[in-house]
């Protein structure tokens, strides 16, 4: 359900050991809001822009380089290229 609500990196990390009833378990769950605002959120059917958003999310996803490093490289490149902030 968390993933279906548009979160990424949804992860059941561990149990807490604190169970409030014999049929429930305490758990820790982590999720992230997608790093780039997606037009899907507005119910738009503008597919090309959706694709652009997906591309952006893919490029900045944690990989060999983490997200922060990628953003810093992009910032450096944009400053070097003289982009307006």
């Amino acid at each position: 359900m968390i993933q279906a609500s548009g979160f990424t990196h949804v992860e059941l990390v561990s149990e807490t050991g604190f169970d409030s009833s014999p049929v429930t378990k305490g758990v820790l769950i982590r999720a992230e809001s997608p790093p780039v605002y997606s037009l899907r959120d507005k119910g738009s059917n503008m597919n090309p822009l959706d694709k652009y958003g997906d591309f952006f999310e893919g490029v900045y996803a944690d990989g060999v380089l983490d997200r922060k490093t990628k953003h810093l490289i992009a910032l450096g490149a944009s400053l070097a290229a003289g982009c307006d902030p």
Binding site: S5, T24, K25, I29, S33, P34, P35
Partner: peptide
Amino acid sequence: LREVRRVLRPGGRLMIADQVLVGE
């Protein structure tokens, strides 16, 4: 969850400690 998505910044983190049903 929709509300959480709305108020979180892009890349924001949701951290939940909770109870999930494992029995009937």
